[in-house]
Simulated assay, not measured.
Amino acid sequence: MKQMSQDGLLALPTTVSVETAARAIGLGRTRVYQLARQGEFPCKVIRIGTSYRIVTVDFRRLLGIEPS
């Protein structure tokens, strides 16, 4: 799976899916779900029912990408 470009990361909405986060950092979706469930993903994760959402501002900070 191809990683996301910086422009793609800057265009993300307020929260992103686990699949999008996994693609952006080059990890498998299963591993990102595992980290989210264990509370070990390195940025804020919101659980809504059975769904996990990654807070984009924290995610961009993790990647060292800030909007200009």
Rank of each mutant, 00 (worst) to 15 (best):
L9K: 04
E66S: 14
E19F: 06
V57H: 02
D58M: 00
I54A: 12
Q3K: 14
P67W: 01
Y33C: 02
Q6F: 05
T56V: 11
Q34V: 05
D58T: 01
Y52H: 15
E19S: 08
T15F: 02
V45C: 11
F41Q: 01
K44T: 15
S17M: 04
V16L: 14
L9C: 14
T14H: 13
A36Q: 12
L27K: 13
M4Y: 07
E19N: 08
E66G: 10
K2C: 02
R60I: 00
G28Y: 08
T50L: 10
P67H: 13
V32L: 02
P13G: 04
T30E: 01
F41G: 00
R31W: 01
A22K: 06
M4D: 10
L62V: 02
K2D: 07
P67V: 12
L9P: 05
L63S: 05
R60K: 05
M4E: 04
I65G: 05
L9H: 04
S51M: 12
S17D: 11
G39I: 13
I48R: 11
A11C: 05
P13L: 00
K2Y: 07
P42N: 02
D7K: 15
Y52V: 08
Q34F: 05
G28H: 15
Q3N: 11
Y33A: 00
G28K: 14
Y52R: 10
Q6L: 10
L12F: 05
D7C: 08
S17W: 03
V45Y: 03
V55A: 11
G26R: 14
L12M: 10
I48K: 09
T50P: 06
S17Y: 07
G64F: 08
V16H: 03
I65A: 03
S5E: 13
L63P: 03
M4G: 03
V45W: 04
K2G: 04
D7Y: 08
R37M: 13
